[in-house]
Design a protein around this nucleic acid. Sequence first.
DNA 1: GAAAGAAAAAATGTGCACATTTGGCACGGC
DNA 2: GCCGTGCCAAATGTGCACATTTTTTCTTTC
Lengths: 246, 246
Amino acid sequence: MAMRAQRIGKANPAEDEAVYQAVLRALLEGKLKAGTKLAETPLAAIFGVSRERIRKVLHRLGAERRLEMIPNRGARVPRPTLDDVRRVYEAHRVLEAGVLSQLVLRVDDLLLARLDAHLAEERGAAQRGDRAASVRLSGAFHVHLVEALGNPELSRMLADLLSRSSVMVSVYEPAAQSICAVDEHGAIVAALRDRDLLRAIAVSREHFLHVEGRLRLDADGSMPTEDLAAVFAERRLRGKVRSAGS
Amino acid sequence: MAMRAQRIGKANPAEDEAVYQAVLRALLEGKLKAGTKLAETPLAAIFGVSRERIRKVLHRLGAERRLEMIPNRGARVPRPTLDDVRRVYEAHRVLEAGVLSQLVLRVDDLLLARLDAHLAEERGAAQRGDRAASVRLSGAFHVHLVEALGNPELSRMLADLLSRSSVMVSVYEPAAQSICAVDEHGAIVAALRDRDLLRAIAVSREHFLHVEGRLRLDADGSMPTEDLAAVFAERRLRGKVRSAGS
DNA sequence: GAAAGAAAAAATGTGCACATTTGGCACGGC
DNA sequence: GCCGTGCCAAATGTGCACATTTTTTCTTTC
């Protein structure tokens, strides 16, 4: 050893993931407003990692359609149109209808019991007025439905749609994050219990249309950019910003 | 100038896509058998491009789940288990059920006419004994169904599943590529014409189960590797293999 | 004064050199 | 004879320097 002083940031296999998670969480939490430019150099300075690492993460997020990549022009937080959001919602609706059609063939008491337990949790959170838990559980209900099929492909497809729609919703539903009504979830479970596929699909469809109906275009004029350093302030890696040239 | 001799291949924006398409087509055509190691250095030599470019393409294919990436160990053509294939088929089945549930609400004469025309094409190909056309049209039927919804999200999800399943099928259904029976497709259209969702879903489900039933595990012992240079022989870029260090 | 052009600045894309990790192979001990 | 240990070769991962493209800004001209 003693061959080299200190290597600032070589071979840190977990760093990619850390940066990825940081940006992703900022996106999911709505900290990054639509239209924000995510330049490589500033981000590298903010996180204290090399530009190549930022670059890799940005392209990965672009491949996942979470960022809009334009060749030679970098990454931006997408500014979805209302139609874009509707399409994602419709995809979710269609996927859930398919899931129900499969699920109705294999409902058993165990599954129904689990769903009932989840509904109870949701009701509890709603009665407590715990908004954060309500939002979380509300999304989790649909995840539960898919995972009951035990098909990773389908679970991943839904997770993709969910995370993208939650990002989009932050544009169009600024203050009040969408909460699915517990009763509507209960109606889906009830239809499943009766093995009534047509009713389950109809209820699920109504449910989604109900949520979609709440979307508003008003927040479209949200400020396009902001201060990136502030957004990632507490997420910076390595404590300091690297010797940083100067 | 004269600062540097000749820059072999800098700034060739279409090269990424060319390599990507070449590897992807080799995968779809079954030229690359399951388990084949795709090392960066040999591929770079074969295509006559830099290793970074190969690297980027390989990682992209990995993100699309078309290659299996293991950190520090490179890329391999995935060796799907029979369960993996079944899961992809099930996902396709579930997605189509959802599509039908949406489609049944908006069938019109134009859509029915288009589907009928497609069925006629399929029958024609079958009667002519044109196997290649049959396979192509058979897959296209399901694409038609999704695209009737006009939702790019859903179309992309299906395209992903289709391309992955066709790769997988090449492992488990070596000689006879799966051809959907035209009659079964016709039954789906008939159910749509009657606006009978339950029947449409049931028929579609039967159809997929029928195709799945044909899968065989026999080809699992397919030779794990092969000669990469031969596979990509006609796809090489730049004619020659680069001045190559000397 | 405004529009068009050119030069400069900034940001993205790429090849290369090198670090790191992995896998194989030989050697030696039990 | 077999297993553990340690080196060696090969393949992957990463930072950096530089090329290219884009954007900004300053200058010039009508």
